[in-house]
Write a protein that binds this DNA or RNA. Structure first.
Lengths: 190, 190
DNA sequence: GAAGAAATGTAGTGTACGCTCCAATATGTA
DNA sequence: TACATATTGGAGCGTACACTACATTTCTTC
């Protein structure tokens, strides 16, 4: 599966259709039939390329998160301000996927063990990124203190993201700046 | 419907069952059969008292959101540390309401306007509470700055609450202390 | 205690959905 | 060209689900 050119093209069509439907009808409204109709593909083709409907949805969300990564190659050059900025952009940008991500992570992750595991794992790698950035920002921190700050900062950003999704007049960026140490704020403003 | 004593009792049994199931299997996992089995009631009885399944779920949600409202007869003497402590206790306590509240606020509030409005309103009153505490903590703050800090702190607490619900080994209290200004931390430790 | 209204349980009904099966066809490789 | 493997569509399967119809029982009132 997924080794011939046409198969890869079909896969892309399916992901596009899923992405589009997620933003139009929400996570609960996406049915397999809607996806396959939209992608002009039979159910058999779908299951030739994906193990389940969930798989396609996850893939779309994963790609959306990746798309706003300030350092996709993991070169360790991103600052705290960069990371915060990327998160804010993800949440306030035009893509509706942030909403889907939170719905999945919270609405489902809270009861579905499999989803919780996925969410925690992706969260884990993000915490590491923030921890490294904290250490670069303030080398006097112990690794434990840096990680604690990373966790708190990420949680705060998630909470702020929730606020802005619930109330679109909420100024997430202004609030997010509160989270940065003062030295990083001034460099972000430059 | 719902005019005889037994009917009202049945109604309560149904709401209890719904509440319990919401916390155990989540919003999407609640089926009519589960509710009626749990409440030891037939489907006919259910529909004699409620117009639809949603009706019962919504009622439970309404009550859960109400329960999260801050104490209305607070005297305005609580410190930031007190408020943070109360929030942490609510999130890490044994009651499943926190989980239900977050699931509904996020899982539904993100798509259902009516629920979003409710969530925002109860959030609003909590922000005011935190704003006052900030002003007491640091009287040099402008009201705007105090409110911004209150919003950020509350969002952070919500995010931390989410973390602890997803991963129960997460030490929410330790992280929440990070959010307090250093003066308040020392007074909280005393 | 009679009568009417409310409550109850059960056995369905209709439907929407995720997914499988499989025969036919297209694609890549030597 | 011949062969193996991937891809395709879509009929249809199994199931889960919200909800209904209705005969029976219980409750309340006068």
């Amino acid at each position: 599966m997924g080794r011939y050119r046409v198969g890869l093209e079909t896969r892309e069509r399916i992901l596009s259709a899923t992405r589009r439907l997620l933003s139009e009808v929400g996570v609960d409204g996406v049915t397999l039939k809607a996806i396959t109709d939209q992608a002009r593909v039979g159910a058999g083709s779908f299951y030739n390329l994906f193990d389940s409907k969930e798989e396609a949805v996850f893939e779309v969300v994963r790609e959306a998160i990746e798309a706003v990564d300030p350092d996709p190659d993991g070169e360790g050059t991103d600052t705290l301000a960069d990371l915060v900025d990327a998160f804010v952009t993800f949440m306030t940008g035009s893509s509706p996927i942030a909403r889907i991500y939170l719905q999945l992570a919270v609405g489902r992750g809270l009861t579905d063990r499999a989803i919780a595991t996925r969410v925690i794992r992706s969260h884990r790698t993000r915490v590491d990124r923030f921890t490294d950035a904290w250490l670069r920002e303030d080398p006097t921190l112990t690794p434990e203190a840096a990680e604690r700050r990373a966790q708190t900062m990420l949680a705060a950003l998630t909470g702020l993201g929730l606020s802005v999704l619930l109330d679109e007049t909420f100024d997430m960026r202004a609030h997010a700046l509160e989270l940065l140490p003062s030295s990083a704020v001034s460099s972000a403003a430059s």
